[in-house]
């Protein structure tokens, strides 16, 4: 039986694993769509400052809890840039995030989560580590993702960027623990961002973001 939940900390951190950064540019909005076999999500983010952002969205995730049901949650999230290093030809960041929302799925009555991301990138190399923990009555979910991206050429503002991104995703929940490699083709300009990926089981996924 599905039941409504209140005071559910947002589970949108799944999305954070999919895209590069949880905060857009200061004063801007970002529309984001995630779609894969296990996860579908749509969210809107507003960043009053480059240091923090707020997001609202809806997420559906299959078999997340270990029960044969689909998690469905609507959430509000806050993300903070804890530290940034601007180097002559590189940038590094530390982000943390969390949120509140409501959710529906079988057999649970609350949840909480914590997440963090560390990344370093140049115009040719991208690396990131993302770690998230979600817990609640009836479920526990954690994943850690390491990503390495390589660009065959250096993009600029007027030229589309093209990257190959390799990810190793470690997942543990009530049902099992797994380690899966993924590969994605990342393309972006100043206005849009698209990751088109496929995991080791051959399941495709996309992550689309629009700046406006």
């Amino acid at each position: 039986m599905k039941m409504p939940l209140c005071s559910v900390l947002a589970l949108l951190a799944f999305a954070s694993a999919a895209h590069a950064r949880p905060i857009g540019y200061a004063g801007g909005q970002m529309l984001m769509l995630d779609a894969s076999d296990d996860l579908q999500q749509l969210s809107v983010t507003h960043a009053p400052s480059f240091r923090y952002a707020f997001a609202a969205g809806h997420l559906r995730a299959a078999d997340l809890t270990g029960a044969d049901d689909t998690l469905s949650t609507t959430y509000l999230r806050a993300a903070i840039l804890a530290k940034r290093w601007n180097l002559p030809r590189a940038q590094a960041n530390v982000f943390v995030w969390g949120g509140l929302g409501s959710a529906r799925y079988a057999g649970a009555d609350g949840s909480r989560h914590i997440g963090a991301q560390v990344d370093y990138e140049t115009r040719r190399i991208y690396t990131s580590l993302v770690s998230e923990l979600h817990e609640g009555s009836g479920f526990s979910y954690r994943f850690d993702t390491a990503a390495v991206g390589i660009a065959p050429y250096e993009h600029d503002m007027e030229r589309m960027a093209s990257w190959i991104v390799l990810k190793a995703k470690h997942t543990s929940n009530a049902r099992d623990t797994s380690l899966k490699p993924e590969i994605a083709w990342r393309m972006f300009t100043a206005k849009w961002w698209l990751d088109a990926g496929i995991d080791a089981d051959g399941k495709p996924s996309i992550n689309l973001m629009l700046n406006y």
Binding site: Q91, R159, F188, M209
Partner: peptide, 11 residues
């Protein structure tokens, strides 16, 4: 310093 990504530098 820090100019590495067009999507971010659009700001």
């Amino acid at each position: 310093n820090g100019l590495v990504c067009a999507f971010c530098a659009n700001g």
